[in-house]
């Protein structure tokens, strides 16, 4: 009796055969070329998130502004103390505090943006899951927010330049290409890291360690030409070398080496293109994992 009912049910609701999946081949990449346009169309979303980030950062605490410059400022003071008071300074140039700050401020932008964009998709998982904005927005927004903090920090350099009466030259306009190149570099790195960190959790920590190493591998407390012999070539291939030289050119034109700048440009925009493709390629997998 029960048996027959069972078979009746079987015939009424036959288990769906795993239908062969037909149609176009499994899709891999989502047209990376069409995406910049989609991103541009939704630029208002970036603006909104940016304003939210800055509001949380600056409006919620009186010390907001101070916090964003405190880190590079304290670091600069520490290195200034170590390298001019304890050791005899043999790297960089006078005034060393200005030299340090003009490297540390863009480094703080780099460090913060890489750190946060690596976690961008994971931290805001709920937002990513519930809104259909181009997913690149989550990385772009971090790079720009940290970039804004960098800009807010520039007056600090000006302050020390005045105190030490450092001479400024016209090359201060090179800040503009420096900012563009660093933004491209950060976007590239962020677009690669953000989806990877979703898929491989502890990559996050590796990023932290690598960043700490990168601090010493980048010409921040020294200049490229302070590196001995062959190391100069090695250090010069760090895209930050060329970028920092542009940042410093207003006060230290002697360190500006256009070959380094060219290398930095190629690497930055190369990474941006690679990052763009990696992100487009991993997006569908990442969306399932968030």
């Amino acid at each position: 009796m029960i048996q027959s009912v069972d078979s009746d049910a079987e015939s009424a609701a036959p288990p769906v055969q795993p239908a062969p999946v037909v149609g176009p081949e499994r899709r891999r990449t989502r047209a990376p070329l069409r995406r910049p346009r989609a991103l541009w169309d939704r630029r208002r979303a970036v603006g909104l998130l940016l304003r939210r980030d800055l509001k949380i950062r600056y409006a919620s605490s009186v010390l907001g502004y101070l916090w964003s410059v405190l880190d590079p400022l304290l670091m600069a003071l520490v290195y200034w103390f170590v390298f001019t008071q304890i050791f005899e300074r043999s790297v960089g140039a006078e005034p060393y505090i200005v030299f340090l700050l003009s490297g540390l401020l863009p480094w703080t932008w780099f460090n913060g943006a890489v750190h946060e964009s690596a976690r961008a998709l994971r931290v805001d998982g709920k937002l990513v899951r519930s809104t259909n904005v181009p997913r690149e927005v989550w990385v772009v927004r971090v790079v720009l927010a940290k970039g804004a903090e960098f800009l807010f920090g520039l007056p600090v350099i000006a302050l020390f330049a005045v105190i030490y009466s450092a001479e400024v030259n016209w090359r201060i306009v090179l800040l503009v290409p420096a900012i563009i190149m660093q933004a491209a570099l950060l976007l590239g790195i962020g677009l690669i890291l953000a989806p990877l960190v979703v898929l491989v959790r502890d990559l996050d920590r590796v990023v932290g360690i690598l960043l700490r190493l990168a601090f010493y591998a980048s010409p921040i407390i020294y200049a490229v030409e302070d590196a001995p012999g062959a190391w100069q070539t090695v250090v010069s291939f760090n895209p930050l070398a060329g970028i920092f030289e542009l940042c410093r050119a207003a006060f230290f034109p002697g360190f500006l080496n256009w070959q380094h700048v060219a290398q930095a440009g190629v690497i930055s925009f190369g990474l941006l293109i690679i990052g763009w493709c990696v992100f487009a390629r991993l997006e569908r997998t990442v969306l399932k994992e968030i």
């Binding site: 899709r27 709920k126 519930s130």
Partner: peptide, 25 residues
């Protein structure tokens, strides 16, 4: 559009108001 199909396509020709996981964002 918060998940992407692995095969075939889902084309949506107009804006979408998704009442999905609404409090999430």
């Amino acid at each position: 559009g918060v998940l992407l199909p692995d095969r075939g396509e889902v084309r949506v020709n107009a804006g979408v108001a998704p009442l999905i996981e609404i409090t999430g964002g």
